[in-house]
């Protein structure tokens, strides 16, 4: 393969991937392509098949049928080549408590065949990247959960993999630790890594995710960038309206307006799932004014990944 072909080759190529556990179908024929350098958000409720897909990509599970390729290498045929290219962080993981942080990274570095002299230079850099330089001589069991998550991320990076498979890396972290994790992931994105990351942290990662894939009951229900998926959804946008007085009358009025698909009331006003575009949005404001309602605010709410996810998995999407 020449260099151009290698560049064009997707980092992940999954076709017809099926995984069965007895009579239970965890994956029902997934197709997915992720280009190199993409940060891919993998969304889905618990038990949808995210972790199974990731475990197959990490060579920890054999597919029942179909195939998954990483950088052109089939995970079932060339697992050794695949392991060279991936850094895997599972949703639940343990650490060797009686190791110091540097020893922990030395062990994994040696397990990837990195010579000791090279590791001596590399490990301080990795600890710096994950903000654990001050803990280099600490025993792993003395680290907080957030620190252990970051140490595990450093472990993923020890062999400089091209693809990072991060299964819920921020689960169980406090808000501060989540922000730290997000900042590290931004740095990794800037380094050109391909990252596949699942679930909870997604709403916070909206600005760094290039594409999302929504999985439910073992099938991909939507794949694409966030804006594309939003456009393909019945709900085009979310509006927030706040009026002064005549609340009961206003609610009835809004409900009768065209393109208003859903109306949710909160203590600050109404959230409208609006099916129209700019023109229709402007018309709604004009109607409110014409009907004599006193409009305090009328704004378009930022759609986040969580809204998209909920909309799709509610069955209202049908985006793909």
């Amino acid at each position: 393969m020449n260099e151009q072909t290698l560049q064009e080759q997707p980092m992940i190529e999954i076709r017809g991937l099926v995984k069965q556990f007895g009579s239970f179908h965890a994956l029902e024929g997934i197709d997915l392509t992720i280009a190199k350098g993409t940060v891919f958000g993998f969304v889905g409720p618990n038990g949808a098949g995210k972790s199974t897909t990731m475990a197959i990509l990490a060579t920890l599970m054999a597919p029942s049928s179909g195939y998954a390729k990483v950088d052109g290498y089939d995970v079932s045929v060339n697992p050794h080549e695949v392991r060279k290219r991936i850094g895997y962080m599972p949703d639940f993981f343990g650490v060797y408590d009686q190791f110091k942080t540097t020893e922990y990274l030395h062990f994994y570095g040696a397990s990837y065949g990195i010579p000791k002299a090279e590791r001596e230079v590399l490990i301080p850099q990795l600890l710096e990247l994950v903000n654990l330089s001050d803990k280099k001589d600490a025993y792993v069991d003395t680290l907080s959960r957030g620190m252990k998550q970051r140490l595990c991320l450093a472990r993923c990076l020890v062999h400089d993999p091209e693809l990072l498979i991060l299964d819920e890396p921020a689960s169980g972290l406090d808000p501060r630790a989540r922000i730290e994790m997000r900042e590290i992931l931004k740095e990794l994105k800037a380094m050109g890594k391909t990252i596949i990351i699942s679930s909870h942290i997604l709403p916070e990662l909206a600005e760094m995710v290039d594409e999302i894939g929504v999985i439910e009951h073992g099938s991909m229900v939507a794949v694409g960038n966030v804006a594309d998926i939003q456009n393909r959804l019945r709900v085009k946008r979310f509006l927030h309206v706040r009026l002064l007085g005549r609340e009961e009358e206003a609610e009835s009025f809004l409900r009768d307006q065209p393109y208003v698909n859903r109306l949710l009331r909160d203590d600050k006003g109404w959230q409208i799932h609006f099916g129209g575009h700019d023109e229709e949005q402007a018309m709604l404001l004009e109607s409110l004014m014409a009907a004599g309602f006193r409009v305090v605010s009328f704004s378009e709410a930022q759609t986040n990944l969580e809204d998209v996810f909920l909309e799709i998995t509610r069955g209202g999407g049908g985006a793909e």
Partner: peptide, 10 residues
């Protein structure tokens, strides 16, 4: 839960 990490090494 350390086995999976070990199995993804070389």
């Amino acid at each position: 839960q350390t086995l999976n990490l070990l199995l993804t090494t070389q």
